[in-house]
Amino acid sequence: MTAPLLETRGLTMRFGGVVAVDAVDFTLEEGELRCLIGPNGAGKSTFFKVLTGQLLPSAGTVRYRGRDIAGAAPHAIARAGIGIKLQTPSVFNGLSIRENLWLAARRKNGAKRADAVVDGVLSLIALAGSTDRIVGTLAHGQRQWVEIGTVLAGEPDLILLDEPAAGMNHDEVGRTAEIVRAINRTTSLIVVEHDMAFIRMISDRITVFNRGSVLMEDRADAVMRDQRVRDVYLGKKAA
């Protein structure tokens, strides 16, 4: 058996006395699509930030394809092949849609190939209207797609999506689910979401976070039936 794509052991992130991520052991296989759920403050976004080098973990290891990347700089982790869409849209607001994607595609491609990659991604995320529009003028849902497109244009091997469907209407959520499934044909994904309908549309396996640690890990139907999961979402103290 080959090494897993991503593996954390005892990964911990402390902010003073607060332990946001508490000794998390997490494994993701090549080609997997994993959903992360959990109530607000469970440590999902912090977990993502540690994985992508935006935060320096207090303890533990992160192995990506067998290589320890814990504490590496964000750009080095991005170069290793991990792309992330942040919770609040993080795009180049003053630049055009095409320029946003091009900047991602051009890093490891020549100018010509970068243009081809951008065209491919644009047809996948299928934004309506001109791609010369300035991203800052777009609606929230569209900017989310631009950010997903930008991440895709970087051609990563592992994509982390932090609430890709947040603030979207029903149709937009459906389309985002389609996009996510299309991405998963070639790329591994970890998706943080609260929208259970969205998770049902895409999910394979689900990991439930609570208070910084992994509460359970199973298939979607099993997770949704589980009493402990219901309890933590409703604010009861987990047994």
Binding site: Q54, A78, S90, V91, N93, G94, L95, R107
Partner: peptide, 14 residues
């Protein structure tokens, strides 16, 4: 791009 959004630029590998 870095002027526009430094975090995003670094997450793209720059």
């Amino acid at each position: 791009a870095i002027r526009e959004n430094e975090v995003r630029a670094s997450l793209l590998g720059y």
